[in-house]
């Protein structure tokens, strides 16, 4: 154990953190997005910030990607891999993300 090496902030974070339902489908699905968009969807460099999107708008944009109605480099290819239920779960997750 290296508890003594933890910063006070990390120690506080560990103490006050509440267990979260890790199997929440939205959060687990969003792990795939995190590789480019970041853990909260905050974006980085050329990759857009997708936090706080309205749920309906998120689903609409997704559908546009799926049907190649929206200019895209890779999101059109990604969008076609997910079900409507999964897109709804992602929309919920990123609508709440801060």
């Amino acid at each position: 154990m290296t508890l003594s090496r933890m910063t006070p902030a990390a120690l506080m974070a560990a103490l006050v953190a509440f267990p979260v339902a890790a199997a929440d489908p939205g959060k687990m699905l969003a792990q795939a997005c995190a590789g480019c968009h970041g853990q909260s969807g905050e974006g980085l460099g050329s990759v857009p910030d997708i936090r706080g999107y309205d749920r309906a708008f998120f689903a609409e944009v997704w559908q546009d990607f799926r049907e190649d109605r929206r200019p895209a480099t890779i999101m059109n290819r990604i969008a076609r891999g997910y079900t409507e239920d999964e897109v709804a779960a992602l929309a919920d997750y990123f609508a709440r993300a801060e």
Binding site: A22, A23, P25, M28, Q31, A32, C36, G81, Y82, E86
Partner: peptide, 29 residues
Amino acid sequence: NSTAKTAVAAALAEVTGRPAWDAPVYFNT
């Protein structure tokens, strides 16, 4: 990276009593 998170949820389901992800999706770019 993608499969690591599913593996953690699966491994720790028994330890913590919290459910694993029942319909995992894996992702690559």
